[in-house]
Design a protein around this nucleic acid. Sequence first.
DNA 1: CATTAGATCGTCT
DNA 2: GACGATCTAATGA
Length: 199
Amino acid sequence: MSVDRALLEQPATQVAPLLLGAVLTHAGVTLRITEVEAYLGGGVDPGSHAFRGQTRRNTSMFGPPGRLYAYFTYGMHVCANVVCSPDGEASAVLLRGGEIVDGIAEARLRRTSAASDRDLARGPARLTRALGIGLGDDGLDLALPPFELTLPAEPSEFLTGPRTGVRGDGGGAGFPWRFWMPAEASVSPYRPAAPRPPK
DNA sequence: CATTAGATCGTCT
DNA sequence: GACGATCTAATGA
């Protein structure tokens, strides 16, 4: 299936709602995306990995749109983004939640701790795990094997709010760049950034 | 359901 | 050396 590249050359904040309802397939699992977050480059978004410019980790964010930006965090988790903006400019959409529409058995093998089907891809690290995406997939073109990405024919209805778990200036109401589909069980619960423990 | 603590290590300063 | 675009298990109401 083909992906409209021109669409993905827009900033992540524009692309994010267009990814709701999109279908992503990898390693035997097909996911319908229901929740995403946008992160910009250019030093305007303190919550973004690209805020302080290009580094080894965020290199993919500065590459061509339509590729995967996968990063390792919290010492044990991998999260997946769709790279946006033209080549050389950094922005990306974090995949935060989705519904497994095919390959549930396969997803369950990877998510042994999931209590229910709706929890299989409810949360960015869970979603990435369910799809079998790893750091080795960073930078790959999402329109080519082993991936397959199909955008919805019609934009979906969506709601917006502050991003989850983003500390500092990038969090809160100043950056309402979380987008989700209403009444979807696979949308992760909103969590404000955890306050740093004293000392 | 809500809250809390612990895990765990690559990345950037 | 500190922190993180998180998750799970455990505990209490």
